[in-house]
């Protein structure tokens, strides 16, 4: 369980902003959205790593870089010892067979003109998963695996409900027998009562097929439930990584603390009148210098504005990118204000 299957080191990615002609003529400098600013991460074989963060934190970009939908600009992605960013042609296809993705939107993630069996048969034949005469049986096997009736094969996507479409999307990803599944907001477009069905399916499949899962989501309750470990992202950075229980019980990074406090609790007794964190997310066009969270952080001091903290194990097995946990700062601060963790 502790072996790293996927290792991401210092990954960067930015997107150019389409400037209006007028702006270009005025000679405004070219602006870029900095989606990932040096992300480092490790996914262990067989685990579910939850990746949480708010919009613009780069979690979807990261997911897309991992399956090579986006090309990262700097840094490395290493999968089972191979350099993923260097893969081309057949090697890339082979990698895509091992690492698959399930998408968010049940209404656009399936080709509206292809029946379920056409969609699955295409994947099975292109990758020669099984001999042609076994394709039909394999499709039935996949449908059963994701809890759809055999009759689903001949239908078009529009004949299914949102939850059923997500099952089809999962079946498509599983058709090539991957080891690793990247799930980008798998259930966030579904009604609450249906979400649990799909979550259960994912848990069950992971058990049965020994999948490694990257569960990208914004719903903390969900991530808490299904992840072994959690990485918290903010403005293109991973700010904290730890075991799920640790991170939810003893969050270290001030942003993680704020995120957990802001999530509405189901217990009305925990009602508070004070907002968990002040300020808005800075624009990814203008990522703050130093620590990206310093503009909203209640503990920020001048070092935070100058120097970007590294993602370090201040406590064994618990990585945090925050100067507050730096030994020297702890010492300095202990003399002054009390540190709230």
């Amino acid at each position: 369980m502790s072996e790293a299957l996927l290792r991401v080191e210092n990954l960067t990615k930015s997107f150019p902003v389409k400037e209006p002609l007028f702006g270009r003529l005025r000679g405004s400098p070219k602006r870029v959205v900095r989606a990932l600013t040096g992300v480092s991460l490790e996914v262990r074989r067989g685990e579910t790593l939850g990746i949480v963060g708010e919009s613009g934190c780069g979690k979807s970009t990261l997911a897309r870089c991992l399956v090579r939908l986006h090309e990262a600009e700097g840094g490395t992605i290493e999968y089972d010892g191979a350099d993923v960013r260097a893969l081309r042609g057949g090697a890339l296809r082979a990698y895509n067979r091992r690492v698959q993705m399930v998408f968010q939107d049940p209404y656009s993630s399936l080709n509206p003109r292809m029946t379920v069996s056409q969609t699955l048969a295409e994947a099975l034949t292109v990758h020669r998963v099984c001999p042609p005469r076994e394709v039909k049986a394999k499709i039935q096997e996949l449908l059963e695996l994701v809890g759809l009736p055999p009759s689903a094969a001949q239908r078009l996507p529009h004949e299914f409900s949102g939850g059923q479409r997500q099952r089809i999307g999962i079946a498509r990803a599983l058709s090539v027998e991957p080891e690793c599944l990247v799930a980008d907001e798998l259930v966030s477009a579904l009604d609450v009562s249906v979400q649990a069905q799909v979550v259960n399916l994912l848990l069950e499949l992971q058990e049965k097929l020994h999948l490694t899962v990257l569960f990208v989501a914004h719903d903390l309750r969900l991530v808490h439930h299904i992840s072994h470990r959690v990485a918290v992202m903010y403005l293109g950075n991973v700010v904290e990584v730890a075991d799920t229980d640790t991170i939810f019980a003893r969050p270290q990074h001030p942003y993680t603390q704020a995120l957990l406090a802001a999530a509405p609790d189901l217990d009305p007794a925990k009602k508070s009148v004070v907002a968990a964190v002040r300020g808005e997310l800075p624009s990814p066009l203008k990522v703050p210098s130093g620590c990206p969270f310093h503009t909203r952080c209640p503990h920020a001091f001048d070092r935070c504005t100058r120097e970007k903290p590294g993602l370090l194990p201040h406590v064994p097995g618990h990585l945090t990118a925050c100067h507050l946990y730096d030994a020297a700062e702890r010492h300095r601060l202990a003399k002054g204000e009390a540190l709230q963790t």
Binding site: L69, N96, R97, S108, R172
Partner: peptide
């Protein structure tokens, strides 16, 4: 659209993505 991205993640050739999807 995500179905087109899915086809790319499936490792399908550009020709297949363009003409089939």
């Amino acid at each position: 659209a995500e179905y087109a991205q899915a086809a790319r993640v499936m490792g399908y050739s550009p020709a297949r993505v363009i003409f089939r999807h």
